[in-house]
Design a protein around this nucleic acid. Sequence first.
DNA 1: TGGATAATGCTGAGGAGTTTACTAAGTCGG
DNA 2: CCGACTTAGTAAACTCCTCAGCATTATCCA
Lengths: 385, 385
Amino acid sequence: MATTGTDLSRMREMNQLSIVWALRGNPPSTVTELAARAGLSRPAVDVLVQALVTDGWAEVEEPGASSSVGRPARRYRFRADAGHVLGIDVGVHKILAVLSDLEGNLVGTLRRPVDPDAPPGARLSEVDRVVDDVLGAAGMVPADVWAVTLGVTGPVDAAGRTSFSTPLPGWTAADPVAHLAARFPCPVRVENDCKLSAVAERWNGVAQDADDIVFLLAGLRTGAGLILDGTLRRGHGGAAGEIGALKAVRWLTAPDHLQSCPGIPATAAPGEAAAWVFQAARDGDREAVKAVRRYTRDLAVGVAALVLTLDPQVVVYGGGFSRSADVVLEPLRRELTKHCLRLPELRVSTLGDESVALGAVRLGLDEVDSRLLSDGLSAPTAPHR
Amino acid sequence: MATTGTDLSRMREMNQLSIVWALRGNPPSTVTELAARAGLSRPAVDVLVQALVTDGWAEVEEPGASSSVGRPARRYRFRADAGHVLGIDVGVHKILAVLSDLEGNLVGTLRRPVDPDAPPGARLSEVDRVVDDVLGAAGMVPADVWAVTLGVTGPVDAAGRTSFSTPLPGWTAADPVAHLAARFPCPVRVENDCKLSAVAERWNGVAQDADDIVFLLAGLRTGAGLILDGTLRRGHGGAAGEIGALKAVRWLTAPDHLQSCPGIPATAAPGEAAAWVFQAARDGDREAVKAVRRYTRDLAVGVAALVLTLDPQVVVYGGGFSRSADVVLEPLRRELTKHCLRLPELRVSTLGDESVALGAVRLGLDEVDSRLLSDGLSAPTAPHR
DNA sequence: TGGATAATGCTGAGGAGTTTACTAAGTCGG
DNA sequence: CCGACTTAGTAAACTCCTCAGCATTATCCA
């Protein structure tokens, strides 16, 4: 416990930060409201918020039509557009970039398909183009960005590299952090896609109330991201949640039960095959129901291992198959009941395939916040590495 | 992020706490040393530490023989004996109570065997007697104790009750918190034994440097305790680490491979049977080696599930079988290599069977510290619930 | 005995937040 | 239209904390 002594200036810094947090995410607020929220006296808040205005963190809204009795109050608003963060989802088939202001409002989104076989170099060039376009559309340049987070499949180490297998062809040789760092002076971070989805579900999704969350990515690939005690857990080497690597857990081959179901139209693509099977199962097709049950049984072993290890409050069912959750959730629940001591809540993701990019944005915002905490707030400018 | 505003008095409180932490666990210190450690100026430390002395948190040591040139400095010492915490291990065969001062120095230890078939009431009465004796030997009464932590086998919920199975006969009907709360006015907590062992290994044991730890309890019972990012993880319902409940993980029956090894002397008790097999394996007995390998194989599946889920830095091999780690560790390592993406360090516990009680003490000390942080430090007295 | 060294004690300066009182700017009711 | 009431903004007095600097004190060594 290395608590270090505090002096006046640090105290003022902390109080100013608490004003920022009282300001942000709220409608324009009066000094009195801020004082109540931050637990400070009105005069103190007054000078602090005025300092924020002169620094550029906040702006004044002169009193307009008053709605109640008494002198109308000046209101202060957090300048969410003082900075922006960028979240990028590098998938096998698509690249999705999301630009957000400091309050988490999305100010730009751009999705572009990419050749599934594209080598890392081409994929990163495509990332550059998508990023340029989404920044250009918002009238910004890379120097305006305060944090960049990139999501990829496969476990990511502390340096942002993917050493083990990943569906992205050749990606183990890529160094995405170096690539992005050459273009962005701000902090750059790479993270696993399941982990980012988990973060997104807690931020904007279906698990906002929970502190212990397992996000289950169910699709042609199966994976998991963990949030414990409210924060993303990466593990010592960044490989937390990779239970699918265990042979006894048949996550790798679980989707095959769907692909090999008799009756799938020959013309269907892999992704559509699964969707067809789910629909058939929904319609009562015996073979399809059996295939879904086999899939669920394999899925459940891994989920049970996660649940028994972590005892989460919520398991979020996400990924491509979450659209067909209605035919999967009940069998999954039954299987889990067999395996687990205490059944967590099962919820279905609603964020769709934007969850990775959203989680990336959230992680970028967290990075900004932790910078503010450690460095204090001077004038709002993009942090450097 | 609910940062609340700070004023001067809170600042002083924080600084005083930082002095306490600079004082504690160090030899008697001069004001200058404290100032350096706490990052405060000398005059500030001076008044703070004098306040601590008048409150009773610290005591003065007048300058004695000076060891170097210059005026000899007054030294201040943390009054570790201002309060004490109690850690109790309620095992199947024994009850172990450890009494510690506020610095974590053990001032009393008492172990007493208990009938393995004793019902909860008798077991708790025995706990009372052991506690009375260890307190009596130290010349203390229950009101002198600042925190009590009790360790039991089986998952423990937030109320301190064990709802699932446990080797302690009838324990699911027991309410140990209520029982202890009737005798101790201070905070009382009950925790799972594996979790406490994990805490102890990080405090005083073999994993002091690690932040992500899996403690593996290997004995007639198999279990696990998890430390992630430096703090104990309990899970939402307190059942984190219970991977052994998964059927695919054969932890329940794994020790049977040892019990059923041919050649065990008929006279051996269950615990001695395993020891005999380990010794025989050490001596090269083919059957024994095979039995150990079968045991290890079953053990490894569960460990692999934990490792893949959490990606820890260290796995600590503890429990009764850790005395025979030399014949288990290598096969275990081989098995894990087959299953895992990244092999964590494997270390052998050195704390022996005191680890549960030690972990309980540590949790009590943490409880005291968090009280100080939230309530500030008035005169040192036992906190109430 | 005198000089060097290092700790102690004291005083004043400066900064931050709180309290209190007062002024300004609205609404509401007669 | 005017006065009572309510709420916001502002300024001064006050308290509390830390810090810097200087004088004082105690010990060792030559």
